[in-house]
């Protein structure tokens, strides 16, 4: 029998957290429709601009980082090998 040490170890609670998170996400976007967001740039007038911008730019940053990683990633013993030789 598996003992749950902490309420976070229970997958059902994690699922609840996920649901709560999605509700909060939706709320922030909906709230944007009721409050004057004082847009300064034209692009800010789009509904849910910040939500979409945050999500899309983060995807781009992750993809960009992975792309760069293809060329620049090395084992974490990369420099250690040189130093052992010294």
């Amino acid at each position: 029998m598996k003992i749950h040490e902490h309420w976070l170890d229970d997958p059902r609670n994690v699922k609840k957290l996920w649901r709560g998170f999605i509700v909060v996400l939706a709320l922030t976007v909906v709230a944007g429709g009721f409050v004057d967001l004082h847009p300064h740039f034209e692009i800010e007038r789009w509904f849910g601009f910040y939500a979409a911008y945050g999500f899309v730019t983060c995807l781009l940053m992750i993809v960009g980082a992975k792309g760069l990683g293809v060329f620049l990633k090395r084992s974490d013993r990369y420099y250690a090998k040189d130093e052992d030789d010294e």
Binding site: L25, T28, V29, A31, L37, G48, Y50, A51, Y53, G54
Partner: peptide, 10 residues
């Protein structure tokens, strides 16, 4: 609200 949108969707 705008900051929360930006961060939570991140």
């Amino acid at each position: 609200i705008t900051q929360l949108q930006l961060l939570l969707f991140s």
